[in-house]
Simulated scan of single mutants.
Amino acid sequence: MKENKTSISRRKFLKNSTLAATGTALVGPSLLSAARGLKWAYIPNSKIRGVQLGVITYSFRSMPDQSAKATLQYVLDCGINAIELMGDPAESFAGKPESPVDRRAFYGLMRKKRNNELDQKEEKEFLEMQKTLDAYNKEVAAWRATVSMDKFKELRKMYNDAGVSIYAFKPSAFGKNNTDDEINWGMKVAKVLGASHVTLEHPSDDAHTAKLGKIAANHGIYVAYHGHEQQTPTFWDTALGQSEHNALNLDLGHFVAAGNNAPLDIIKEKHERIKSMHIKDRQTPEHEKGNLVWGTGDTPITEALQLMRDNNYSFPATIELEYDIPEGSNAVEEVKKCLAFAKQALES
């Protein structure tokens, strides 16, 4: 894909990314550690030239501590002030029963299954994990039916006091196997956390998107559907027509990997219905669909961010770290690099 004259030179970015990561919007853990005597002495700001840059907390799935407090610290260490919050940190904070399944192992197998890469042994392991999770999910449903909202209010205050807002919430509460009580619960929690929308994988079921849109309207919230390589320019049209409360959680990288031409066009055409957009750098099918370090793939991240800036689009751009973390680094350091790339794009 051609880059316009305002695009970042990829070689220049890769050369300068370390320097960029030391900027005022990207203060790291050393400064935070030095300021421990003051409560939230450093307040992050990742809204650049009018574009809110955020991160989905799934990006930190490889970090050792998955608690809500540790997740907040990862976000702060990256210099980010707005997030799409996965369900696990929030629900664990509120006392959710602990999962018997290793989360990182399951996510890894789920990703390989999505890409049709599981061998026979892994397929069996995945199915066994899924069976265990099905039983666990029934236990979680019972817990959700009785848990107080107080801990979620406390979590929101903790994040907001640190300067971090929660614009989206993604618990495992909105699937076709979840009860209506769980769906209502998830939307209620999202409102308590201050989120404008919930996110979930598109269920590919018109009856379910119609139901979710109706329930969302009752709560005064939006449902933003995420897509992978099944995304097309018309992928969301049925759901959007069903309810004003159905929306897009566009994934620009997956959209490119799906082989769609002119990926910026869907942003222009559907920006009023996009509630948040995931950004990652993937390749086209001709280049094997790789998930790469930002600036080395085929996804027009720079052009997309500049389009948001120049047209005053208000939805957040959500960093989703999915490329392999280099040896000697970690998720926090890589998210910092992604943020530095985005910052340079917006300031060019």
Rank of each mutant, 00 (worst) to 15 (best):
A195H: 02
R156K: 15
L127F: 07
T18E: 13
L307V: 09
E3A: 13
Y313V: 02
G253Q: 08
E182Q: 14
I166F: 12
K170L: 08
H208L: 12
E125F: 00
L307W: 07
A105E: 02
K343W: 04
V147G: 06
Q130Y: 13
K336H: 01
G253L: 09
R282L: 09
K191H: 05
R156Y: 07
F315G: 06
T24G: 07
A94I: 01
E3Y: 08
L19T: 14
G37S: 14
N16C: 06
G23R: 11
Y225R: 04
N249Y: 14
A105I: 00
D265S: 10
E320F: 01
E322I: 10
A217Y: 03
A94W: 00
T232E: 06
N260F: 11
V198R: 01
E272V: 06
K176I: 12
D88E: 12
K289G: 03
K280F: 04
A224K: 10
V101N: 04
K280T: 00
D181L: 14
S148R: 00
N115P: 02
S46K: 02
E98K: 15
L19Q: 14
Y136R: 05
K96P: 02
N4M: 11
Y107W: 13
H287Y: 07
L85D: 00
C338P: 05
Q344M: 15
N81W: 03
P89V: 02
S243I: 06
N4L: 12
I80F: 12
C338K: 09
K131M: 05
E327S: 12
N178H: 02
V101P: 10
L118I: 13
V332Q: 00
F174I: 01
D298L: 07
P44L: 08
S348R: 10
V189L: 12
A173N: 13
V293G: 03
L26K: 04
A247R: 15
G328N: 13
F174M: 04
Q73V: 01
M187E: 06
A340K: 10
K336M: 01
I221Y: 00
N137C: 07
L32P: 00
T22F: 13
H228K: 02
D310R: 11
